[in-house]
Design a protein around this nucleic acid. Structure first.
Lengths: 208, 208
DNA sequence: ACTCAAATGTGACACGGTGTCATATGATAA
DNA sequence: TTATCATATGACACCGTGTCACATTTGAGT
């Protein structure tokens, strides 16, 4: 995983905050590829050369911000899961709604909205890394132990992996769809709930 | 939908083919954003100004190519569906496998591989437009009439929309995952089949 | 406080890519 | 032939990136 250079973390708190804010502002304006380092420099009031002291390049800064955000999201998810006693579907619905609300909140920056609308494999991975990788091996265990698999249609823990894959794929798909079609939160939730129910009961008729 | 300018279609067959080949070659080398128009010009042997007579920009050329490819894919899918008497899941499995085989075939260009690895909303939409939009209204009917909904867990035709959304979301997710993790076709098919089965029978336990 | 070395800051610059535009060339019809 | 319209061309203005030689600051040792 790419990371800012050590000099970035050696910066004085305030300067680092300013830089982060400027970067977030630029990545809220446009996508990673359209973003211009010059704009970040202007807003942060630092010279060009400095940027490259702290980050490898634009992407480095972007994924640093995204990863920080993803960490928070993950903690939220764990909280939702606990709150619903391990009910994966309820936790996903809450998660979905909270991302939507965050994206619609005009008080917030547009960062997440932009991220979702430009979702790709690398971005999705940044979010789901916490679910699948051993980097946070305690987290890994956390999640796998928190999910109530008694009510899932699986025979072993391994199959939970597939369930998570499906459920996250559908959630991301709905997120992107909702934001790009500019659905209201209610419309988006309705659609997502319908699809979650289909996922739960199965797409095929049970008996014929 | 963005389209090449009329002058592009007025080009002599051969020159157009050369240009298409050059563009495809560049988009096979790298992603849309990394691609350089200069490389296309070099390979096609046309001056810079000409490119802008034919296309609005890089994206225009890219999505033209992609759309042409998506049309073919859609026809394949219809064929798979007919072959399996409307069994959506079998058709999806065939579709999945044929895209994978195409991507692995070293005799082919890397275009599709690159497209899948840089999948985003706009690209996915280019593929699924045929399933959801009225542009090809006859196709729309085609698909919705071809799918055997008798064996699906839905009450009306409208719900088929959600089933398609889910099934395509999971297929795209598996495609990207398979190519980026460099799974063999066998490994990828195995994973996808497991998930398709989960989708069919449902993620939640039916009775407790 | 002084010195030196390592770390950090700085901005001019080389490079490469994009899209445009004035001009050239070709095609067509009267 | 000539007028008109479509197409071709490549030099150019503009913008963004990443680098590098040099400037400045920091901090440890004395």
């Amino acid at each position: 995983m790419q990371m800012p250079k050590p000099t970035f973390f050696n910066l004085k708190e305030e300067k680092r905050r300013t830089l982060i804010a400027a970067a977030k502002s630029e990545f809220s304006r446009v996508s990673l590829y359209e973003a211009s380092i010059a704009n970040i420099l202007n807003e942060a009031g630092i010279p060009r050369g400095s940027f490259y002291q702290y980050f490898e390049d634009k992407e480095d800064a972007f994924y640093y911000l995204l990863n920080e955000h993803a960490k928070e999201r993950y903690e939220h998810f764990i909280a939702h899961l606990k709150h619903h006693d391990g009910d994966l579907f309820k936790a996903m619905a809450d998660m979905f709604q909270s991302v939507l609300e965050y994206s619609h909140d005009r008080g917030q920056s547009n960062f997440i909205r932009n991220v979702v609308l430009n979702m790709n494999y690398k971005i999705e991975n940044t979010f789901t890394r916490f679910l699948s990788e051993g980097t946070f091996s305690n987290h890994y265990d956390d999640l796998f132990q928190l999910v109530d698999i008694e009510h899932l249609n699986i025979s072993d823990q391994d199959a939970l992996y597939h369930v998570l894959q499906i459920v996250t794929a559908v959630m991301f798909h709905n997120l992107v769809h909702s934001l790009s079609k500019e659905l209201t939160i209610e419309e988006a939730m309705k659609k997502y709930r319908v699809e979650l129910d289909l996922l739960k009961t199965g797409l095929a008729k049970s008996s014929t």
